[in-house]
Simulated assay, not measured.
Amino acid sequence: MPEQSAIFTEAALTSAVAAMFVAHDVPEGDARRVAECLVLADLRGVVSHGVSRVPIYLDRLRRGLVKAQPQMVMERPLSVAARLDADDALGFVAATRAMAEAVDMARNHGMGMCAVRRSTHFGMAANYLLQATDSGMAAFVFTNASRAMPIWGGRSPFLGTSPFAFAAPAGERPVVLDMALSVVARGKVRRAAARGEPIPVGWALDADGNPTTDAQKGYEGVVLPLAGAKGSGLSLMMEIIAGVMSGSAFGGNVRNQYTDFDAPQDVGHVFMAFRPDVFLEPGAYEERMTDLIRRAKDQPLAAGVDEIMMPGEIEARATETRRREGIRIDGDDLRLLAEEAARVGVALPH
C-alpha cells in the first residue's frame, strides 16, 4: 500500500496550524507566528523542525508545561542589552520578541543583545536570523538545548546539539548559516527512528558508547559533535552564552521536550543584532557584500560540483520551489498532524 501523503499550500498549512494553537488558547498573533516559523522550516527543507513538531508543542501546552499566555517581562540593564523572562512561553514567541528587541537597540545604538531565560524549544534558528535581515541587520542567534551529545572524550549526553547561527543581509538572498554542532541534527535521528530507517555510521553512538546505524539506539544514545573536539568546544560555548550567562538551565539540565514531563524546559537563548554598515561609508557594505559573493561563486569548481552556493542559498531555492509546488507531508507526520487537527475541529485543506 503506498504511503499516505498530501500537498499543502503555504497559506493553507499556516492557517490550519495557527488555528490548532488558537484552539489551545494561544493568542491569534502568537499562534500565527508559531505557524509561520514551522511552515517556513518545511519550505526551507528543514523538516525536522517543521510542522511534524506540532503534536509535541500542543501536548506540552495541554500539560501546562508551556504557557499559552505567559506574562513575559523584559529587563533592560544597559542601552544595548536586555533580558527577557519568557515565563515558559512557546519558544517561537519568546524568540521573536527578543530578536525584535535586539533589532530596536541596533537601530538606535548600532548593536543590541537580548538574552532569554525560562524559554522552550524555538524551532529553526533561521526564523530569527531572517527576522533580523528583513530589518537590514546582521545577527547571531545562540541557544542551548537538552543533552544529546557528549563533551569531547565522554560517552554520556551532556551538551545540546545547539545551532551555530549567523546571517548577513545580501540583497534578495541573505547569507544564512544555521547549522547544528552535531554531525547531524538530533531531530533527523529521531525522524529516522520513527520511520524505522537506518542512519549512517558516524552520526551517533548507542547507550554503551558504540557506533551504531540503528536510529532508535542512536536516539537513545548520543549524537556525535561536528568536527570532533571543535564541535564540542563550540557547543560548550553555547552552554556558556545561552545557558550560564542568560540565567537559564545549563550543563545537561535543560529538559527534553519529548521525554521530560515533570517541569518546563528552561531553555536559554541569546540574540545579537547589529548594523552591517556601522564601520563603512553609506552604500559601501552592499557593494562589498555583492563583490564577495560574486568572487566566491566565480571560484574554480571542484570535481563533481556544478555550482558554488552561499550558506542558506539551497534553502532559499527550496522555499521558492515549494511556494510554487506546495509542501508535501506524508506518513506518520501527516497522520499525527491530522489527529491534532481533528481533536480541535480544524480542517486540513490540501
Rank of each mutant, 00 (worst) to 15 (best):
M1C: 12
E3A: 14
A6H: 00
F8E: 08
E10L: 04
A19S: 14
M20I: 10
V26R: 08
A31D: 10
A35S: 07
V39I: 04
V46Q: 00
V46S: 03
V47P: 01
S48F: 04
G50K: 08
G50M: 09
G50L: 07
V54C: 04
P55T: 13
P55D: 10
L61T: 07
G64Q: 07
L65N: 02
P70Q: 03
P70V: 07
Q71W: 07
M72H: 12
V73W: 04
E75A: 09
R76Q: 10
V80R: 06
V80T: 14
A82P: 02
D85G: 05
L90I: 14
L90V: 15
M99I: 10
A100T: 12
V103L: 02
D104A: 08
R107I: 00
M111T: 12
M111K: 00
C114D: 02
C114A: 08
A115N: 06
H121V: 05
M124E: 01
A125F: 08
A125H: 08
A126D: 05
Y128V: 05
L130T: 01
Q131Y: 11
A132D: 00
T133Q: 06
S135R: 14
A138M: 13
A139L: 03
F142I: 01
T143D: 01
T143S: 14
N144W: 03
R147Y: 01
R155N: 11
P157M: 02
P157F: 03
F158G: 03
F158I: 11
F158C: 10
T161G: 06
P163E: 05
F164L: 12
P169Q: 06
A170I: 00
G171A: 11
R173D: 08
P174F: 00
L177D: 09
A180L: 10
S182W: 05
V184I: 15
A185P: 14
A192I: 09
A193D: 01
R195H: 14
G196F: 01
W203D: 10
L205F: 13
D206F: 15
D206K: 15
G209N: 14
P211I: 09
P211G: 11
P211C: 11
T213L: 03
D214C: 09
A215T: 08
A215Y: 09
Q216T: 05
G221C: 11
G221D: 07
V222D: 07
V222T: 15
L224H: 09
L226T: 09
A227V: 12
G228Q: 01
G228K: 05
G231A: 13
G233H: 00
M237I: 06
E239S: 05
I240V: 15
I241A: 10
M245V: 07
S248M: 03
A249C: 12
N253H: 15
N256F: 06
Y258R: 08
T259L: 07
T259V: 10
D260N: 06
D266T: 09
G268Y: 00
F271G: 02
R275Q: 13
P276N: 05
D277I: 03
L280F: 15
G283C: 02
Y285Q: 08
E287M: 05
R288M: 08
L292Q: 10
R294D: 04
R295E: 11
P300M: 11
A303K: 03
I308H: 13
E313D: 09
A316G: 04
A316F: 08
R317E: 12
A318C: 14
T321Q: 12
R323L: 13
D332K: 13
L336P: 12
E339F: 02
V346T: 05
L348S: 02
